[in-house]
């Protein structure tokens, strides 16, 4: 039977924990909002990019660009976007489980963003090609080298395709591990809505003016594609970030609620114990008094 002092100590320690998890919950909520705003800010870029792509599709010879054909090799390159820090629920575990359960190809190399993914994949003895540290909030200038790296690797022909695994942010409580193909670019969906985007207006090719392309449609196309890939990648990283923060927010909210429940239970036990002690004392006093009479 614990003494009242033991229980008091436990209540105090759990109160401290609850305070920390509550603070983390609030910070995560603010960061999630920021990441969502960031993704929304990039939307006008994506929309204009799609408009130009649709216009180009009609004018350029799509088959001519190496980004549209699968590489000759039989390897697959997978970029895994996870969080740097833990305490965010089953976010990273779910993504990695999906990765392990998906047939990615005979030979797979991994590239990671985020420490959690890098260490888990290293533990699973997977072949890690590179790890890119991306700070929070993610800046586009930090994503560019990642995009460049993936594209260069793809262009060597060693890889059949380049995939990206990330957590798709649907809403605050719904996250979905997703694996999307980054390269080769699918010419049919190019310029259309991407699966992970929430809102999007489809571009009608007939509504576009008859553009002139300088120097030529093919050359503009060749210049647009790397930027399109980088922009897509950036949006995916932002989705991953928003998921991370929302998942942490939910995890921390649960932790705070649990702590509060434990405090309630312990307080009840403490009061019972205290009451028992008082009753005991009273009993002793009365017994002593009766013995004296």
């Amino acid at each position: 039977m614990p003494s009242t002092r033991d229980i008091r100590r436990r209540i105090k320690s759990i109160k401290n924990t609850a305070q920390i998890t509550k603070a983390m919950q609030l910070v995560a909520a603010a960061k999630m909002k920021k990441a969502q705003d960031q993704a929304a800010n990039g939307r006008s870029y994506a929309e204009l990019m799609n408009k130009i792509l649709v216009a180009l599709k009609g004018s350029a010879e799509e088959g001519s660009h190496p980004y549209f054909a699968e590489g000759k090799g039989n390897r697959t390159l997978v970029l895994v976007i996870t969080s740097d820090k833990g305490l965010c629920g089953a976010l990273n575990t779910n993504l990695l489980r999906k990765l392990v359960n998906t047939d990615l190809g005979p030979e797979v190399d991994f590239v990671t963003i985020g420490r959690k993914g890098a260490s888990s994949l290293a533990r699973l003895k997977k072949s890690l090609k590179a790890d890119f540290p991306i700070k929070d909030p993610a800046a586009y200038s930090m994503i560019r080298p990642v995009g460049q790296f993936l594209q260069d690797q793809f262009l060597t022909g060693e890889y059949r395709k380049v995939l990206v695994a990330f957590n798709n942010f649907i809403n605050t409580v719904t996250l979905e591990p997703a694996i999307e193909q980054l390269l080769p670019v699918n010419p049919v969906t190019l310029g259309g809505k991407r699966d992970f985007e929430e809102t999007h207006t489809e571009v009608d090719p007939a509504s576009l003016p008859d553009y002139e392309f300088e120097p030529s449609a093919n050359e503009v196309f060749a210049a647009v594609l790397p930027q399109y890939v980088n922009g897509t990648l950036y949006q995916m990283v932002l989705e991953g970030r928003a998921s991370e923060h929302s998942s942490r927010m939910v995890a921390m909210k649960n932790a705070t609620d649990n702590a509060k429940q434990i405090i309630k239970d312990l307080t009840l036990e403490y009061n019972k114990l205290r009451q028992a002690a008082i009753t005991n004392e009273l009993l002793e006093i009365t017994t002593a008094k009766m013995a004296l009479e």
Partner: peptide, 17 residues
């Protein structure tokens, strides 16, 4: 990429790098 370019109103529709 082809050199400096000035754009005035009513320019012909153009896409360039």
């Amino acid at each position: 990429t082809e050199g400096e370019m000035g754009i005035l109103p009513a320019h012909a529709p153009l896409v360039t790098t």
